[in-house]
Write a protein that binds this DNA or RNA. Structure first.
Lengths: 247, 247
DNA sequence: AAGTGGTCTAGACCACTGA
DNA sequence: CAGTGGTCTAGACCACTTC
């Protein structure tokens, strides 16, 4: 017998079904990691066609509540968010993550000295003809999964040993090299995974992505590093402490 | 004749089609606001069924590149993001928005004095039996559209005139009332619109949402306000300046 | 009335998983 | 092998917009 998804004829069937499943998930009838009924079972349960069931499941996936695995089934998604603390100076990241019960790592993808692209020249206030920067692309791993891709441009002049950038975090290295970071201008926004990002982070096209952009300044308002971090919206979030700015 | 979506048999048809359309959008062949070919036209153009075309369009919508309007068509989405500057003290918001070319407003939804819910008691370090707070729910409008919903709990003790909260921004009011905000602890994360939020912000279920949570402290580390802002990921982003923390 | 997107059906075939 | 989800088809009806 079809279950009671009859109320409110104005709301589409697939929505009524996904809403009912959503309720059950939120009430704990299905725990994180649990398998939901199969498409076939849901078809019988609600007395609807497969396409409608699939649409309902798509709604849940779209709301970040479920994920599908071909050949296996649909599962309630587990919440595994970790806070990335934005501060200056940067805290020692590994410790911060360990405190949250996850291991972290960096996988270097690209590290090369190059002449700065024009956009980078602008933000770093460089002379386009002579400006060299280190360009680095790296993955940030949590418990082995890639959760963020980071792209950084560092003015070559302040980097004594380029290779060290490959294995260490950028900001602590700069401090160590006698380049104190006085100010970091940052922005945070929400976008969607495009094909390369989806590929790197091993997620579906269009998955929500948190974008963190930054320009870091040393003494005398001189910019030395800029870049951006694209992270999985379902795995990372940011925390900031705003202290009183006596101006 | 079908167009060349033949390459790479491993990639689903709907993805090849949406990727091709995506390319055209990014190359500017379709400008923001332009109407894309109708489903019927795309069916003929690519020689595929309607369901596949619809799936391709859904991919674009899911990537934030297009939006559909029933009875009208599919249109390339316009980028209309505005920065919300996080600072302490809060800058005068209207001016900040005007500088970005948008008008802003507040629509008060709920404002009432109540005993604090237990979670709020915890974050505001209140005595659960006697603690009164002002609970406020308001919409933040940009160019007339609701783009964020804000929920705030303010310790009643520091509020001389509750009604003023309805029409003014909370933080400047507190300063004016002699409650200086020394520190604000914030977090930013990405989620999806659930039914009430989707309804308030007039967006589809599951649309990306930026969540900004905060606890504000006055002198002596005493928390006085906490709350959260849920904003449309496609309309708002945040900017923060991190100054050197000499600890 | 004609054209648009939104919902829903029944049914076919494929790819992946695990016993 | 049976069961799962992934892709794709053809076709029907509806709701909304524009003329």
């Amino acid at each position: 017998m079809p279950r009671s998804v009859s109320a409110n004829r104005q709301v589409p069937l697939h929505t009524r079904i996904s809403e009912q499943l959503r309720e059950q998930v939120l009430l704990g009838e299905f725990a994180p990691g649990d398998q939901l009924p199969s498409e076939h079972q849901l078809m019988e349960l609600f007395g609807v066609s497969r396409i409608t069931v699939r649409r309902a499941i798509a709604n849940l996936v779209n709301q970040g509540l479920a994920e599908t695995q071909q050949g296996k089934g649909v599962f309630v998604k587990e919440q595994r968010k970790v806070f990335y603390r934005l501060s200056n100076p940067m805290v020692f990241l590994e410790e911060d993550m360990a405190r949250q019960g996850v291991s972290c790592g960096i996988e270097n993808l690209v590290l090369e000295k190059m002449t700065a692209p024009s956009k980078v020249c602008q933000t770093l206030q460089l002379d386009p003809t002579t400006a060299d920067v280190y360009f680095q692309k790296k993955l940030f791993l949590l418990d082995g999964d890639p959760v963020a891709i980071d792209i950084t441009y560092t003015i070559a002049e302040v980097v004594p040993l380029g290779n060290e950038l490959a294995s260490r975090m950028t900001f602590p290295l700069l401090e160590q090299w006698g380049v104190p970071i006085e100010r970091i201008e940052t922005t945070l926004e929400c976008t969607h995974a495009d094909p390369p990002v989806a590929d790197y982070l091993n997620i579906a096209l269009g998955s929500p992505i948190l974008v963190y952009r930054y320009v870091a300044y040393t003494l005398n308002n001189r910019p030395v590093v800029c870049g951006e971090s694209l992270s999985r919206g379902d795995r990372l979030c940011y925390s900031v402490v705003l202290t009183k700015n006596h101006s």
